[in-house]
Amino acid sequence: TPRSRRLRPARPLGFERSCFAPMAASDEMAQKDEDDMKDEKQAEKEYADFEARVKRTIYIDHLSPLVTSQVIKASLAQCANVVNTEFIENYTIEYEIPAAALVEVDNVSQAQAAVDLMNNFPFMLGGMPRPVRAAFAKPEMFPDRPRKPGLKIEFSWVKQGDPGYDGMNKLKGLMRRQEAENMALIKNQLEEEKELAAQQQETLEANSNKYDMLENLVNNGEITKLAQHYKVKLGDD
Rank of each mutant, 00 (worst) to 15 (best):
L66K: 15
N169V: 03
K233D: 03
K152W: 07
I223H: 11
I223A: 13
E181G: 00
Q201F: 07
T224W: 10
A134C: 15
D49N: 08
G161C: 04
N207Y: 08
F87D: 05
L7A: 12
S69K: 13
P163R: 07
M124C: 01
R147N: 11
I93W: 08
A134H: 05
E154N: 13
K45V: 13
F155W: 09
E195H: 01
F123H: 07
A99Y: 11
D106T: 06
M23K: 15
I88L: 15
L174P: 00
G173F: 02
A135P: 06
K45N: 08
A184Q: 06
D106K: 10
E96N: 09
S26Y: 04
S26H: 08
M124A: 01
E104T: 15
E181F: 01
S208C: 10
P149Y: 08
M183W: 01
R5V: 07
N220Q: 02
E96K: 14
M118S: 01
I223C: 11
D39F: 09
V158E: 02
V232G: 09
V115C: 00
C19A: 06
E104S: 11
E140Y: 13
F142L: 05
K45Y: 11
I88N: 04
R17F: 03
E222K: 15
T85I: 07
A180L: 02
S18W: 06
R147S: 14
D116Q: 09
D106Q: 06
D27I: 09
M118E: 01
G161A: 12
L217E: 10
D33F: 02
V115Y: 01
H62N: 14
N119E: 06
A197F: 03
F155L: 11
V54A: 11
N220I: 14
A198I: 07
R177E: 02
G167A: 10
M213I: 04
R177Y: 01
R133E: 11
K73S: 15
L217D: 06
F123Q: 02
L204P: 01
V115M: 00
R177K: 05
M175P: 00
A137Y: 04
L234S: 00
D106M: 08
L171D: 10
A30Q: 12
N84P: 00
E46D: 13
D36S: 13
R177S: 02
S4A: 12
L174I: 01
N220G: 08
A80K: 10
R145D: 00
A101R: 08
G221Q: 12
S75R: 12
C79H: 11
D144F: 15
R147L: 07
D49V: 03
S208H: 04
Y211I: 10
L151Y: 06
L117W: 04
K73Y: 13
F50K: 07
E40L: 06
I72L: 14
E44N: 06
A10E: 04
G126H: 02
V83R: 00
R56G: 12
M183Q: 02
L66M: 09
S18I: 09
